[in-house]
Amino acid sequence: MAAVIHLEAIQKIYRTGGGLDVHAVRGVSAEVQAGEFVAIMGSSGSGKSTLMNIVGCLDRASGGRYLLDGLDVSGLNRDQLADIRNEKIGFIFQGFNLLSRTSALENVELPMLYLHRSLSHHEQRERAMGALATVNLAERAHHHPNQLSGGQQQRVAIARALVNRPALLLADEPTGNLDSQTSIEIMGVFQKLNDQGITIVMVTHELDIARFTKRNLIMRDGLIVSDVAVAERLNAETELRRLRDAHQAVQLS
């Protein structure tokens, strides 16, 4: 079976005004197989976000080859990339990026609006409710983003990413705006989805968050400098329980 992500010497060069070229990514080769749960780590400026944008088909590489699910996306045009983003990839952002003044349900329905094969209104509703149920937010379907907590908003964003049943879930600093307990809850959602067979790649700079994944890639100066399997993987449920116990202990003492 082909890898979900296959990167061959991917480069990204930004041309600045003064004739100075910035090499954000300098030839990254990597593979991610179906069912993996990968964290890309690195300090800011290491090129991890640029690489993530390329993998998410939001941006195009300056050089190299990128096969997504066996399909070469390097030479696709804007519209074809939009279709790939719509059907093959679910993207989750640090800032949630939900449409304000639009209910959670409608936010989740949004990707289906741009689906080529158009779905019946009933089917759309059903799929959106299903996606919300996956992240345990079915009862908040009609709330607007400003009526939801950060964790809940991020779960709506995850439901939105899932609704078109993509092969790949990409998350750029998904816990960056969340407190530690909510972060672990979100990682719990990811672990559950990964257990169901969904491939997940996320960018983070928090070491303890990366420990919930199965494999860690570390980038520095546009290159992957380390690629290791996570030895002592954390389980979100256990961690949550421990956190709650600790909390209780503090209160008791």
Binding site: G56, L58, D79, N97, L98, L110, Y114
Partner: peptide, 16 residues
């Protein structure tokens, strides 16, 4: 602009 970015990120084409 941000809304346009969100819509594009989840698969809206330029034409949409």
């Amino acid at each position: 602009t941000r809304e346009i970015g969100i819509r594009m990120a989840i698969g809206a084409r330029g034409g949409d």
